[in-house]
Every structure is written in structure tokens, then in C-alpha cells.
Amino acid sequence: MLTTRHGVRPLGAADLAAFLELARRDPVVNVFADYRASTTNLEPRWLGGEMWGRFEGGELAAACHVGANLVPVQAGPEDAAVFAERAMARGRTVSTIVGPQDAVRVFWNGVAASWGRPREKRWEQPHLEISAPPQVTPDPLVRRTTRRDLNELYPACVAMYTEEVGVSPEANGGGELYRARVAQLVSRGWSFARFDDRGRLLFKAEVACATPYAAQIQGVYVPPECRGTGLATAGMAGVVEIVRREIAPTVSLYVNEWNTSARAVYQKVGFRESTRFATVMY
């Protein structure tokens, strides 16, 4: 297959093995891209975008997921600059740039002049991992959610998203799509929560993506009136215990540096920083 300038071209099904070998050089950091490739076979119609690969000497050296999220994979500074040049040629189609801090920064510097002003830039996001039992007692009442829980779960998901991102996922008619996403995670067994004896949600978290090597957590939330009571610490320990036993041996997430309360929770549970992520949101 012909390559384009700088040895960059879209990857396809024939490149899947090479891509997975690349991503699994750091299978925890690259869990999102690994999951997307494995579940779509790198077919653009299932990816909802493209996976770009950069080749050196005929070997895949770096990649970049380009869908709703743009995510560099094993990309050094030169790779990120080359991906930015390709992205400039097609214009912005993504809503978020996210991934290892150095690659995101180089990519952003390459596209900033033409991609317009982002809604927010978060340059310091510790990427955390745990590959051992939690260091605190797990909440025994944390469980997988079911469709019967959606009336309590869905509003909590909307509240968490709005608090974290700054806009509601229901904005601009997005409610139906977001509800479908929440229901999909429930049906996969990737949604976890703790409820009180009246059925009120006290804690929730989800697995965003998973491979045989790692699972990435998202959407950790405790209602404001219940915060500071230890629910998040015991709840996260419960999620880690279930996920490591039934989904993947390593659990990861990334968190904003300024979110000191969340970082304290994750530290108590046993998460340790492995690298830094950055996110640019439009």
C-alpha cells in the first residue's frame, strides 16, 4: 500500500497485528487505542474515523486515533509533529485531543493556529495505575448495575459529566445518545454503583474501555451531599477488586492535577502515577 508524506497513511484490517504490537508496548497507557482497534478491526466505518500510522523503514513506528477523540499512540515529538501536519491538511474534525502529555503538547502546538480556540486545556493530568489488591477495605455493597437502576444511575451520570467537562451531555440534543451510552455500559457489565437501602445512588464508576491487559475507569462520582464520608475510597476499592478479578489485571485512570480530593482517594486505594496525560477540549 502506498504511503503518504512522511510515511503516514490510514491503517486498515491488514495492519491490525502490527498496530496491536505497537500499542502493547505500553498496554495500560494505550488501553483506549488497543480496545478501539481490537473491537473495530481498524475498519473506518466502525472506528467512526481513522487510525493513522507512521512508518519508518517499512515498520509501524507510531499511530494516532482520529475519531471524536484524537489520541496519539507511542508517538514521540517528531511523530506528533507529523500527525499534526496531516491533521492541518484536513481541518479539525475531533472534539478532544487526549493522551500522553508530551505528544499532545507537540500536536497541539502544530494545529493551534488553525484549529480555533479550545474550550479548555488541561495539561497536568496524572495517569494512575493499580495492579494489586486495593490497600483499603472494599465496599461490599458496590455491584454491577442493571437496567432497573437506570432511573437513579442516569441522572448521576449526567451530573458527573457536567461537573467534570463543564457542559451537559444532553446539550444540543445529545440526551438520547448519552442515555444509550450509559445503557450500553450497563449491558456490558462495565457500570458499578453502590445504593442505600432506599435505592438512592451513593457512588458510581464505569469502565470506559478494556483489553486483556488493562481496564480504564471513568465517571467516578459521589453526590455532593455525600462527599467526605469515605464512600469514594471504599467504592473505588470495590470497583478495583471486581475489575481486577473479572475484567483485567491492571486498572487505570487519569485525573486532573487540581482535583486534590480525588487524587487523595486514589492514593489511599493504591493507585500510583505512571505518566502524565493532557487533554484539549473543544
Rank of each mutant, 00 (worst) to 15 (best):
G67C: 07
N69F: 13
R92F: 08
P44W: 13
S38Q: 13
D79Y: 11
G58L: 06
R45P: 01
A89Q: 14
E59A: 15
V73E: 02
G48E: 04
P72K: 00
L47F: 00
G53E: 07
E85F: 05
D79A: 15
V71R: 04
E43P: 00
T39I: 09
T40G: 03
W52S: 03
A61I: 00
E59W: 05
V71I: 15
A75V: 06
G76M: 09
P44L: 10
R90S: 12
V82I: 14
R36M: 11
R92A: 14
R45M: 05
R54K: 09
P72F: 03
A87N: 01
V66I: 09
E59N: 08
V71K: 07
W46I: 03
F55N: 11
T93L: 01
R86P: 01
A89E: 15
L42R: 08
W46G: 00
P77Y: 05
E50C: 04
D79Q: 11
A62R: 08
A75Y: 07
V71W: 02
E50A: 11
R86A: 06
G49T: 02
R90V: 13
R54S: 12
T39D: 09
A75K: 07
T39N: 08
L60N: 12
A89G: 15
L42A: 08
T93Y: 00
R86H: 15
A63V: 08
L42C: 00
R90N: 02
G48V: 00
A37E: 07
R86G: 04
G76W: 07
G58R: 11
R54F: 01
S38F: 03
T93C: 02
M51Y: 03
E56A: 15
T40Y: 02
H65K: 04
E85S: 13
V94C: 10
G57M: 05
T40E: 06
E78G: 09
M51W: 01
R86V: 15
R54P: 06
G48L: 01
L70Y: 04
T40W: 05
L42E: 03
T40A: 04
T93M: 07
A62P: 09
A61W: 08
A89F: 01
S38P: 06
R90I: 13
V71T: 14
G49A: 02
R36E: 06
G58N: 05
A87G: 11
V73G: 03
